[in-house]
């Protein structure tokens, strides 16, 4: 394994040396203190959802689905890196605590209600990572009708990376987050949320570049 890592490191150095305009930061790229920032966002988004539909969670079974933007971000917590799946479980566990007795089942087919939760990650800016959590509650029999919606504010913090090696841009740059809330316009269209316009709305249909001045 060490041999493989050495080869990988040497390849990166070769790319850097051949590319003479790089400014290489002396910090690990793409390591963000994400997990500690996510928890308050989950709480805020869920509280907003409860405020939006105070009766929706009463006396109903709730299924839950947690999704994290598929971007090449590493989330750090407690001095260690979290894989995306581990972070998803953390968020789910936090929501289980918040839902309390309402979470009687986690089987989607059996539950009356479905709670979809997204951790949206915006790495469109070269020097920052932005996070937002959004929650959507729908009924099993009417998945396109919104019962309640809540979202957190956008948390933005500095991202440290190798400037020239684009090591954090091999994949998607995530959801393009904007400061304005999307809780109104998206759902008034009546076109649903999950699998649908919400993601389409945020994701650029084509890969996007960012201009950076050194």
């Amino acid at each position: 394994m060490k041999r493989a890592l050495l080869i990988l490191a040497a390849t990166q150095l070769t790319a850097c040396a051949a590319h003479n305009a790089h400014i290489v930061e002396l910090v690990p790229p793409d390591v963000v203190d994400g997990a500690d920032r996510v928890a308050p966002l989950v709480d805020e988004a869920f509280r907003a959802l409860v405020d939006d539909g105070p009766d929706a969670l009463r006396n109903d079974e709730v299924a839950m689905a947690v999704e994290i933007d598929d971007v090449d971000a590493a989330f750090a917590a407690d001095g260690a890196l979290l894989e995306r799946e581990e972070l998803r479980e953390r968020i789910e566990g936090q929501l289980v605590d918040l839902l309390g007795d309402a979470l009687t089942t986690r089987t989607v087919d059996a539950a009356e209600l479905r709670l979809d939760v997204w951790l949206l990650v915006d790495m469109g800016r070269i020097d920052a990572v932005s996070l937002r959590v959004a929650c959507l509650l729908t009924h099993r029999d009417a998945p396109r009708e919104t019962l309640a919606y809540g979202e957190s504010h956008i948390e933005t913090f500095e991202r440290l990376r190798c400037f020239g090696c684009r090591d954090d841009f091999f994949g998607d740059t995530g959801t393009r987050l904007r400061n304005e809330s999307r809780s109104g316009g998206v759902f008034l269209l009546g076109t649903g949320y999950y699998y649908g316009p919400y993601h389409n709305h945020y994701h650029s249909p084509r890969s996007t570049y960012t201009r950076v001045r050194n």
Binding site: H19, A21, S207, T208, R211, R213
Partner: peptide, 16 residues
């Protein structure tokens, strides 16, 4: 303008 050697365009590829 941006053609002064100090601009990068970063995305799926990095462009100097």
């Amino acid at each position: 303008g941006d053609f002064d050697g100090r601009t990068q365009v970063v995305g799926p590829d990095t462009i100097d």
